[in-house]
Design a protein around this nucleic acid. Structure first.
Lengths: 162, 162
DNA sequence: TATTGTTATACTCTATAACTATA
DNA sequence: TATAGTTATAGAGTATAACAATA
């Protein structure tokens, strides 16, 4: 929906060929790469399994799937959201039987949020559908181009985690 | 803020080296690439010039910068938003003197929305800051790695536009 | 007394429906 | 009568402040 990152125009719009040249100005590369990344990310984000689930809800499910059971506070910190907002999100997810909230065994104040089987299935289904869209595109590339993307993916992960 | 796309765990978590191998399974590559793209996109999206401006507002400015003056209806269609929502967004942008609304010369019903000099500066500033973040990261790469990202960017643009 | 989670309330962004002005 | 834009009103999602229960 949002085009906030879709700044297509660039200062010097050179030919968009695949050929890598020797003298790559990082600033020019950055402008090109940003547009390409944002656009691809938006396309991928649009592909989700359960359209009735908000991004935030989907995100909580993904985090729980990756980390295992967490408390409200931990989830709120993870999502950079205030605890009352997370309470609301979790209430919605619990109502849809995607998570359960059980008392923390050691600390009576806390509640442990756990992914249900349905919640786990939703995470996997979303992932599968998003990957399916991208896989179809990758299938149409040359092996050489896929190799480039494989290397780029590793480099991008390093950059994003820096 | 949203971690919805941050699904780090993958079915077969192989070594994350940069080496491109010959037999790249598109499905495995897709899972890797998606995580890398989403994460990098989120980092870049966080870098904007005016933090008081919402994504939707920033997006309208970017569209106007790219296309020139548009009407309310055209902007609403472009942003996949209903006209009343765009009215509200534009009222906010006009109040901050980032756009002006002038009567359409030919059709008295329409209003032409035009970017002001401040609006244009905001677009350029945002772009510059986002690119600056990425440029710093790219500066630390080998020329060879930058070449890979340059090729990957072109391929990703093709995929996103498909 | 400090912390976890919740409720109460308000603000932002978006939507639909109804209204005004122009074609 | 149809279209562009606006106003009125409602529904998500998130925030802060105040409250209850537990450490």
């Amino acid at each position: 929906m949002s085009y906030a990152n879709d700044m297509t125009s660039r200062p010097a719009d050179r030919a968009g060929g695949d050929e890598a040249v020797g003298d790559l100005d990082p600033a020019v590369l950055a402008a090109d790469l940003r547009v390409a990344l944002m656009r691809a990310a938006r396309r991928i984000r649009g592909e989700k399994a359960d359209l009735d689930l908000s991004d935030g809800q989907l995100s909580v499910l993904a985090v729980l799937h990756r980390t295992g059971p967490l408390t409200n506070r931990e989830l709120a910190d993870f999502e950079h959201v205030q605890p009352p907002s997370m309470t609301r999100t979790l209430a919605c997810l619990e109502e849809r039987a995607l998570v359960t909230r059980t008392p923390h065994p050691a600390d009576g104040r806390q509640l442990l949020v756990t992914l249900t089987e349905d919640g786990r299935a939703t995470v996997l289904d979303t992932r599968r559908r998003r990957d399916a869209w991208l896989t179809r595109r990758l299938d149409q590339l040359d092996p050489d181009e896929r190799a480039v993307l494989a290397r780029a993916g590793a480099i991008l992960r390093r950059i994003a985690d820096s």
